[in-house]
Every structure is written in C-alpha cells, then in structure tokens.
Design a protein around this nucleic acid. Sequence first.
DNA 1: AAATAACCGACTGATTTAGTCAAGTAATTA
DNA 2: TAATTACTTGACTAAATCAGTCGGTTATTT
Lengths: 164, 164
Amino acid sequence: MKLTTRGRYAVTAMLDLALHGKEGPISLADISSRQDISLSYLEQLFAKLRKSNLVKSVRGPGGGYRLSRDDTKINVADIIDAVNESTDATNCGGKGICQNGEMCLTHHLWNDLSTQIHLFLSGITLGQLTQKEHVQSICERQDMEQLAQNEERLALIGLDSGNA
Amino acid sequence: MKLTTRGRYAVTAMLDLALHGKEGPISLADISSRQDISLSYLEQLFAKLRKSNLVKSVRGPGGGYRLSRDDTKINVADIIDAVNESTDATNCGGKGICQNGEMCLTHHLWNDLSTQIHLFLSGITLGQLTQKEHVQSICERQDMEQLAQNEERLALIGLDSGNA
DNA sequence: AAATAACCGACTGATTTAGTCAAGTAATTA
DNA sequence: TAATTACTTGACTAAATCAGTCGGTTATTT
C-alpha cells in the first residue's frame, strides 16, 4: 500500500479541473497557483493522467486540460491508479507468493484490506466531490486567494514599468 | 498513508506468537525461521512492540516473547501503530493545515479514507485470525517446513563432526 | 562458567519521493 | 510568418525512508 503526495496531488488537481473546467480548458499554471503544486510536478502527473485517458489537452494560447469524460464517470481510484500509486496492500501484488512462492500467514488479511480500500475509493466520483459543501467553500476561498495574488502581481508590474 | 513490509512483518510475527505461544515464550529465532524474517529485523520490531505493551519478554535460555494480553484483545491496528506505520491518509496528520495552514481541497476525502481503514483494521483481532481456516493450514505447513529444516541442520552437523 | 536469548545503537545500500531544469514541439494570434 | 503560449519529454538531484546488518551488552538458566 502506498498513498503519498503524488496520489493526493493528482486527485486534488483533477478536482480543481472538475470545479473550474465547465467552460473551457484550464492551464496547469492556474491549477498550480490555486492548489500550491509545483508546475513542473503537475506536468509529470498530467502526462500520466493523459496516458490513462482521464484528461485531454488543448495546446496553444488559451489552451490547457479538460476532463476526458463527465466528472460523474471518473472516480478517485481511477486517478490514483493512473499515477502509479497502488491501492494494493499485499507485498506480492495479490499473487499469493509472499513466502518463497507460497502464501504468507497474513496474505488474506492484506488482500481483504486492499479490496476494502479499492471499494471505498472507486465509489467516490469527482462529480460527487464537487457537490460537497466543504469542497465548494474551500474552492471559493482558493479563487479569492488567486485573484488577490494576480492583483498584487499586476500592481508590481505597474510600479516597475511606471505608466509609460 | 504508509503500509509497508514493516507493518506486515509485525502483524505476521504477532500472529505467529498468537498461534504458537499457548504454552510458553517463543524465541525470535523460531519466528525468524518460520516466517522468513531476518532475526535482527525482528529484534527492531519487537523493541517497538514491547514499548507499546503488546508483548512481554523473558530473557535467558528457554526465553522469548509472549503476548502481553489475550489474543482477542489485540487488534491489527494496534500492531501497525506500534511499529510507526500510520493508517492516516492525510498529508497533514488530520490537522487540516494541508495548504499553507488552511485546509486543502481533498482533506475530507483522505480523512474519511483514514477512518475507513482504521475501522477495518481495528475490527480484526489476532484471536479472530487464529481461528481462520486458511491461517491454520498455512501455519501447519510452516511448522512442517521448520521441522524439515531442523532435521537437515542436524544431519549436516552429524556429517561434519562424524559420530564421535 | 557456558550457553542462550533478549537488548541496544550505529551503520549502510537501495529505492522512492518530490521536485528542478532545460530543451524541445505544437497550436494560436497578431 | 513571427512571436507567444502552453504542453511534452527526459535527465537529473537532494532528501527521506526502508529493509537489513553488525557488533557488542545484559540477564537468565543449566
């Protein structure tokens, strides 16, 4: 079992996409500033998400990423799998060859746990998450913060270049 | 979330104790040979298990470890916690400070997952595991293998030293 | 006293994570 | 068509963690 920042980032980024991508494609730079995830790292993750057919990319100015299907048709387990984090809790990949080719004493236990985790995560879709109240309120906060950041940046540029 | 060989070894070793420790203390050397876990590594793990009051030790010849309470009173989550593997799936340790002190978009999701995993694992006791049919059959196999190994070893010693 | 087995701490090689950097390629817009 | 914007790819790295080793100490029994 392995669940680290990578899987969490991927799910967070995908949820950001689901929340903001209603109109058009969203750039990774936007996601990066809203979710505080390094742009280069997002690029790595989205390469995998694209290979697993969870997102589609649009190049050029105004481009970015969009979900490749409806947000009610993408679940959390899909995303975690796509970035190579397994929800498998066994050591042997579920094959039952954990002790010299034979089954170890606790194989079934880890197998059951894996099933449990997978059931839970595959039962939650991005669509469901976007409907949650606390998700929406955090989303609003992040949008505000991003606006504030943009204004600051613009102000700085204004100062630097004067009003030429 | 982190669940690696360490946690799996700890649970396996504890289950071995529950299965074999009915009469007296069991040495780590025994567990090591039955479960194919390095003796030194077991020592590390049992130091932690002892600090968490899950096992008691008996020194000297014939010594070893025994469970510090009934096997129906020790659950799998207890053991995993003891060896420092967390069942927490959040990045912030459940504190909700995942994004610059504020809550990240997916905090609740990981929190729910943690709860789910912990519920599952803390609902399974060593006592329950010892009753399972497949556990008992694997246990028997391991006992046979250990016997075979001992005989081989004795035979080798016999050859080496002759029949002096 | 000798054998046994737990106890302790320092150390190590390998792997993985999270993240950076640089050099592309493709699509738009002016 | 030139400049811009944004995605794409791959190599690279510092830090952390894991799994495991090694040498030696302490306590207990025979």
